[in-house]
Nucleic acid binder design. Structure first.
Lengths: 147, 147
DNA sequence: TCGCGGTCTGAGAACCATTCCTGGTTGCAG
DNA sequence: CTGCAACCAGGAATGGTTCTCAGACCGCGA
């Protein structure tokens, strides 16, 4: 990660013939700033506190565009929410979301390699393991109360 | 599957002190009739064509209640939709949803057993593999067009 | 069989995140 | 600098799901 993620993102935009606009920069910077796996809504409100006010709709559109370009990664989790993070910020990894507290846990990327192979052989289905968060209960919630 | 799923469902309701009402029966029968993994919306419109008209809100409530009772299983898939099916109708199994055509593929239940164990050891996270549909691309869509 | 208590339903509006539409703005190539 | 096209703001529309409340009905006990 020697490259500034913001710089990398803007470069990726230019390379694809996309414009680098203030709203887009604001979204990218918000993603670079926010820890974890913010939802579109979280990004929107983070940007809202900035000097550049960016309209909600623009945030959604921009996140979508950036996801297309591969600049950001989006993960769907259980309750229909989608979270985003800059692709550069971390190694590829999988996600698991606690169904009780909503925390997202990062898992190692190769965890599902075997499964992916098996599913390909058995069903001809090409699994994309990072695209959806697995569900379950995190250590804290398991300890906190009983099932 | 020697037991009629509708009977099993009504019995489960009674055992929990829940009432067996016409709307609930209609929902259960719709689930027993519909193939695959219908969404709440699909169940609602299936029920709407029946002689007993059941209000949308009631369908949602009922599905929720039945899921609590363990009579139906609900699975979240990528686009925020939730699908339901009677728990009795099939062996426990996992789901994978094609991100292109939306088809839900059933996978064998033990597929993620190893992964579950690993995640438990590494993160203390208790994976519930059936609760969320994995994502990817089905055989037909892979053949149909290129990535 | 009948009545009662409490649960369940219907109806429509509220709700929330997301998407669409339109006219005005702005990046960027020339 | 100028013009074109892509982009954005604003706000309304959308679509699925949940809420509220008064009335209906289930199931138990008499």
């Amino acid at each position: 990660m020697s490259t500034d993620p913001v710089v990398a993102a803007t470069r990726a935009l230019r390379e694809r013939g996309q414009r680098v606009t203030r709203p887009r920069l604001a979204v990218i910077e918000a993603l670079a700033t926010l820890d974890g796996h913010p939802s579109a809504e979280a990004v929107a409100s983070a940007v809202a506190t900035t000097s550049d006010a960016v309209h909600r709709a623009t945030v959604y559109r921009t996140l979508d565009r950036l996801a297309d370009l591969g600049v950001v990664t989006h993960v769907h989790s259980s309750h229909g929410t989608t979270s985003y993070h800059l692709a550069d910020l971390a190694e590829p990894h999988l996600h698991a979301r606690c169904r009780t507290c909503g925390t997202v846990v990062d898992l190692s990327a190769d965890l599902l390699d075997d499964v992916r192979r098996k599913v390909d052989e058995a069903n001809g289905f090409d699994l994309e393991p990072g695209h959806v968060a697995l569900s379950g209960r995190c250590a804290a919630c398991r300890a906190g109360d009983h099932d």
